[in-house]
Amino acid sequence: MFESGPVPGKRLVRIRVNGRWREDAVADDQLLVDYLRETAGLTGTKTGCDGGECGACTVLVDDEPVPSCLTLAVRCEGRSVETIEGLGAGGRLHRLQRAFHEKLGAQCGYCTPGMIMAAEGLLRRRPDPSEAEIREALAGNLCRCTGYVKIVESVRAAVEAGA
């Protein structure tokens, strides 16, 4: 149970961010997206709307893609949060990153981090999704550039490339 901190006070919160445990003083009212961008300095996660309407802020919390502007940072105590910066290891591109790059799944790139995290969440649950399943899984992520055509192609290409 959370301690009831003093009013604008902060509490120490332990969150595993991209595989590494961090401990930060976090205000009760800090949104996860602001924690990631400002406290953890991970600006790969974007914001596109005034709350819950675009999906640009999608990250994985315990493997599940959720909009990080719709959840509080303090709620992630003890949980694992993954952002676009956490994909790919040792300077190698993750298969979704490579596919989005090669198939032009990213034009302006602003929706891309959220889109890739939503797709990654899908592939962890469902390694070989159909096109309909891909479209459904990305239905909470708006893109203004691509018409989603090359985004869906990119996810398919990543599936074909294998893990």
Partner: peptide, 13 residues
């Protein structure tokens, strides 16, 4: 914190 429309100050229990 520079983003517009932040949450108001609240305490969470």
């Amino acid at each position: 914190m520079t983003a517009p429309l932040p949450l108001p100050r609240v305490r969470v229990i």
